[in-house]
């Protein structure tokens, strides 16, 4: 499931433009896994935005929840929560939190981005292990998976040529790795309660052993100003699957 989540969030952009992300937006997806050619629904993925005010700043809370459908809870229960608190203007993260519970395996992780933009103060804890505190440096443009998932929506694909590639870096599990986003063209796909939508199709590839195949990890974004991710197809070591939009609100 972790791999699925990574792929979902490898929807990345490096372009700094004004965010087109609505506050209080809620996108609900159904995650399915391909078993012998038949798609089996495993979990619900919910992406949500929410404004957060502190005494001196405004943030946008970007969150992703992964919850297995009740039929799976007895066998393999997943309750994952990913959060990124970002600058609402440029989606630059200030705080990233991750709390996963996958079949009894738990892990919590917190990154505090220090003011220099290149240092992360990390706190992590795995099940039955002691808390680990560390500080590490990153490329100033590197972002966590959640804020990157939203950042892709600020890319202007209108002038992109088929095959054009953009590269960037994400931070996951205290490691940085480069990711390429390749524009694949336009396609019309089903977008849950939004009906059929013309979408930009982009291919995601990363220098990691988690993703498999060339141009087999794809994401479709509505070809409008919102750029809602409506479909993600992924290919990993143990098979293939997809995450499809079932309901979008507050967009």
């Amino acid at each position: 499931m972790k791999k699925t989540i990574i792929i979902l969030f490898l929807s990345i952009s490096y372009v700094y433009s004004f965010a087109q992300i609505a506050q209080n937006e809620k996108l609900v997806y159904a995650a399915s896994y391909n078993m012998s050619g038949l798609m089996t629904q495993l979990a619900q993925v919910t992406l949500q935005t929410e404004p957060v005010k502190t005494s001196n700043k405004f943030y946008l809370r970007l969150s992703a929840e992964i919850t297995t459908y009740s039929k799976w809870d007895t066998f393999f229960k997943i309750r994952d929560l990913y959060e990124s608190y970002v600058n609402p203007t440029n989606l630059k993260p200030s705080l990233y939190r991750r709390s996963i519970n996958e079949g009894g395996y738990t892990k919590t992780e917190k990154y505090i981005y220090l003011a220099d933009g290149k240092t992360i103060k990390s706190t992590s804890r795995k099940k039955n292990r002691a808390e680990i505190n560390s500080t590490f440096t990153i490329n100033s443009s590197s972002q966590d998976v959640i804020s990157m998932a939203y950042k892709i929506r600020t890319i202007d694909f209108t002038n992109y040529k088929v095959g054009q590639v953009k590269t960037c870096t994400i931070v996951f599990d205290e490691k940085e790795f480069p990711v390429s986003i390749k524009y694949m063209g336009k396609e019309t796909v089903s977008a849950g309660n939004l009906g059929s939508k013309e979408c930009y199709c982009v291919s995601i590839s990363a220098k990691t052993d988690k993703l498999k195949g060339k141009d087999k990890n794809l994401i479709w974004l509505t070809a409008d100003s919102k750029k809602i991710p409506v479909l993600v197809k992924f290919s990993i070591k143990i098979g293939t699957g997809q995450v499809s939009l079932s309901n979008a609100s507050g967009i």
């Binding site: 919850t67 459908y69 009740s70 309750r79 608190y85 709390s99 003011a115």
Partner: peptide, 30 residues
């Protein structure tokens, strides 16, 4: 006939609220 549903998980909801509160504290310190 059987629809895929996600049950209301009180513990998970509580965890989310706690996470938000802790985040608020961290953000105040930045």
């Amino acid at each position: 006939f059987v629809k895929d549903v996600v049950v209301v998980d009180k513990q998970f909801n509580l965890q989310k609220e706690e996470s938000k509160q802790e985040a608020q504290k961290d953000l105040e310190g930045l």
